[in-house]
Every structure is written in structure tokens, then in C-alpha cells.
Computed example of a mutant assay.
Amino acid sequence: MTETATKRIFAYKICTPVANLEFDQMNKDVYLKQIFEPFLGEIMNQNVNVKALREEGKFFDINSINQNEDADYLEGVFHTTRYGTQNDIIEITTQAIQGHVLPTQGVRFDVHFVLCRRTGLLLVESDPFRVATRNTIDTYLSKKQTLVKKFIEDYNKENYPQFVYDSMVFTIESVMDQGFYDQLAEISKVKEVSGYMEVTDDGQNAAISKFKKDAAGDEHNVSEVTEFKISLINSVRNSGLKHVKRFIDNSLDLEKFSRFEVSGYDNMNKKRTASFNVKPVSFYVNVGINGNGVINSAQLIQEMVNIAKEDNPLDSEG
């Protein structure tokens, strides 16, 4: 019998915002493959010494991008690892040291992805190093935006009054359950945003550990904690918190928060509170693995293409 492994697939939404200069309007939800795909091509043409992101002990690079058998999809592989400290390589049965991973080295992981050329849906395989997150992909692409300048100039010349700003080439967001951002948009003046983390053990967060009762039984510490709440508050009259959506997007990358609560006032100055569970859209697929634990990458890509064809969450947005 062939062994299988369950892989989690995260869904992201890539957009290339387009302005209409005649009507002074901005469409932030459009995806232009004629802008984004040449952008990816220019990245792939970069010298290997400058193409990768090396930042805060994280390594991230686009290793390959290819046309899928279905013309509506691109497929590819990210390379990820973590580096910065020397570690021993051990034989797990005897625990004998077999070698060392040096601070400038890392164990590479291949993270597979599929991009829907029609909607901008980006499906990304779960990364055990937690490097290939929305935030890392956004940082990586943002640092390379100048590569797409020529394609933007050509697009703007040929499509007036449609206009793409070279300072805002793309956005990438986690795809959320229907209504997530709609609820947030109803509160025009946010006074408080709170994130909740479910507590399962002391080791998951150093701050929680300072307050919870530990296994040794310090009776002076708090015990039976089930949630930890972090709040950002604006107490200045007639003002509100800014960039709340960005804060929530970045917080999602931590994969720690179970829900958010936002309170403030709507455009009629009525007090509003929105409480919602954080449920980024993701999928689970089963794929075959060989005797060395390596997945069947062709099967994984096909499963991801099937998701984009049959369960594309962006098809229901419009």
C-alpha cells in the first residue's frame, strides 16, 4: 500500500490595483496577469546572489515558475529555510553527532505553489519552517517592485484612463471566510482591537508563562487560563486606530490568534462591536510519499489545481 501524507494548503489573494484617472476611482480587487506575470519573470532572471531574501534568520526564494498543463495556472516552488545558529546533526536512534549545520547553512524545504492566472488566487503548501507566509512573500515581492516599472509604463500608455501606480504594483492578502472584512469595514472609527489566543500550554508564549501557574505548582500564579487577550486602544476623543486591517493581516501570519474583536463607531456615530473567529481559508489534501518521506510533487500540484478549479474562494467574491 502506498503511504500518504496530509498537506495543508493556504489560500492568498493577489491583486494589482488599477486607478481610473477620469473618474478618480481605484479598483483594488482586480488581478492583471499582464503586469504580475512579467514581474515574476524579471525576478527569475535575477542573479542568484541577489534574488533570494535573507532576513532575520529566514531564507526565501522563488526557485521555479512554470506553465501548468492547464493554461489557466502557473505552478512553481519556493525554497525556504532558517539559518543563523550552529546546530548538530544527529542520528536519531543513537543520537550520535553526524555533523554540523553552520550559521550560514540551512536545511532546504521545497514549498509548492499554484497561481490562478484568471483570479490571482495563490495556493501555497504549508511550510514547516513557517517562512513561506503571506508576510514573507509580500516582503520579498515588495523589495523587487522596481523590476516591473517598464511593464507598468507600457500598460499605462496602452490603457488610458486605466492607470497602475508603480508604488502600488500589487497586494497580497490571506483569503478569509466570507464577510470577514465586510464586518471590519462597517466600523469607520476603531477605538479598540483585541486579539485572543487559546492557551494550551505554557511553552507557547513567554508572556503567558509569566502569569500562568506552572507544573511545579506555584500557588501565587494564575491557573486555569484558557485564553490570552492582547488589546490595542485609542483613548483620544474623535480619533481612532489606523491601519487595523494591516495589523490583522500581519497577525494572521503568526497563526496564534483564534479570534478578533473590534469596537468603535460607524458613520452615524453609533457604537458598534464586531467579534469574529479568525478562519483563513485553507484546504487539506492527501498525497503519496516515498520511502524517504518525499511527497509526490506532481500529485500535490494537481490537487492544488483541482482546488483552484472547483473550490476557488475568489469566484464567490464578486
Rank of each mutant, 00 (worst) to 15 (best):
residue 282 S to C: 13
residue 244 V to N: 08
residue 288 G to L: 00
residue 252 L to W: 02
residue 220 H to W: 13
residue 227 E to H: 14
residue 282 S to M: 12
residue 185 A to Q: 10
residue 208 I to F: 10
residue 221 N to E: 04
residue 208 I to T: 06
residue 190 V to P: 02
residue 256 K to G: 04
residue 238 N to V: 15
residue 264 G to L: 05
residue 286 N to C: 11
residue 260 F to P: 06
residue 216 A to Y: 05
residue 259 R to E: 04
residue 271 K to Y: 05
residue 286 N to L: 11
residue 229 K to R: 12
residue 232 L to K: 10
residue 231 S to D: 05
residue 262 V to Y: 01
residue 260 F to Y: 13
residue 196 Y to E: 01
residue 263 S to T: 13
residue 190 V to G: 06
residue 289 I to P: 03
residue 185 A to P: 01
residue 238 N to K: 15
residue 192 E to G: 01
residue 188 S to R: 10
residue 257 F to H: 09
residue 215 A to T: 04
residue 187 I to F: 10
residue 237 R to H: 11
residue 202 D to Y: 08
residue 245 K to M: 12
residue 225 V to C: 14
residue 194 S to R: 07
residue 189 K to L: 05
residue 281 V to L: 12
residue 178 Q to W: 04
residue 176 M to C: 06
residue 262 V to W: 02
residue 275 S to Q: 14
residue 191 K to T: 09
residue 182 D to Y: 09
residue 185 A to V: 02
residue 250 N to Y: 11
residue 281 V to N: 08
residue 272 R to A: 02
residue 290 N to P: 02
residue 211 F to Q: 12
residue 199 V to N: 06
residue 279 K to C: 13
residue 190 V to Y: 04
residue 200 T to C: 03
residue 269 N to P: 06
residue 210 K to S: 07
residue 291 G to D: 03
residue 240 G to P: 00
residue 203 G to A: 08
residue 242 K to L: 03
residue 219 E to M: 10
residue 231 S to P: 03
residue 228 F to I: 00
residue 200 T to A: 06
residue 286 N to M: 13
residue 183 Q to K: 14
residue 258 S to G: 10
residue 193 V to N: 03
residue 247 F to K: 12
residue 188 S to L: 10
residue 199 V to W: 00
residue 181 Y to F: 15
residue 227 E to V: 15
residue 212 K to L: 06
residue 188 S to W: 00
residue 256 K to S: 14
residue 209 S to Y: 02
residue 271 K to A: 15
residue 211 F to S: 12
residue 217 G to L: 11
residue 227 E to W: 01
residue 291 G to I: 04
residue 227 E to Q: 15
residue 229 K to I: 10
residue 219 E to R: 09
residue 266 D to S: 12
residue 217 G to V: 08
residue 197 M to Y: 06
residue 257 F to N: 10
residue 243 H to M: 14
residue 273 T to A: 08
residue 185 A to F: 06
residue 284 Y to P: 01
residue 265 Y to V: 06
residue 252 L to Y: 01
residue 291 G to A: 04
residue 224 E to G: 07
residue 247 F to L: 15
